[in-house]
């Protein structure tokens, strides 16, 4: 199971990176989303997968899932949610003001400051 999840995270990373290197702004934003999904899956996998056991340590409960990776993922998901929504707003404004969504056109040169 861990191996499958690692491969899945790897595929998400690869597709994310591919999208990140595209020229269209929207593809780049989608790429960052995919990479963050990959990273979150990866945290879950690194905390060792166990199915059917809640993350509770109580008297008489011997079998439980490590709660720390779940806490980490939750924090990380909230952060990447916020950043992605900001990024969408930012890329829309960039598109409207610069009148292009092609990164090749957004290079700029040294003398326009």
């Amino acid at each position: 199971m861990e191996i499958l999840m690692s491969i899945l995270a790897g595929i998400l990373f690869a597709t994310g990176l591919y999208n990140l290197m595209q020229k269209q702004i929207l593809r780049i934003v989608i790429g960052t989303g995919l990479i963050s999904h990959g990273a979150h899956l990866f945290i879950l996998t690194m905390g060792k997968l166990k199915r059917g056991a809640p993350p509770i340590l109580d008297e008489g409960v011997g079998n439980y899932v490590d709660p720390l990776p779940q806490a980490l993922i939750l924090t990380s998901i909230v952060i990447s949610f916020g950043v992605t929504s900001f990024l969408l707003a930012l890329s829309y404004r960039t598109y409207v003001l610069n009148k292009t969504d092609n990164m090749e056109m957004l290079r700029g040169n040294e003398n326009d400051q």
Partner: peptide, 16 residues
């Protein structure tokens, strides 16, 4: 954003 995601991944590696 990219290096932050790499940061999270690295923390996961180290945790494992």
């Amino acid at each position: 954003l990219f290096s932050s995601m790499l940061f999270v991944t690295t923390v996961a590696f180290l945790y494992s």
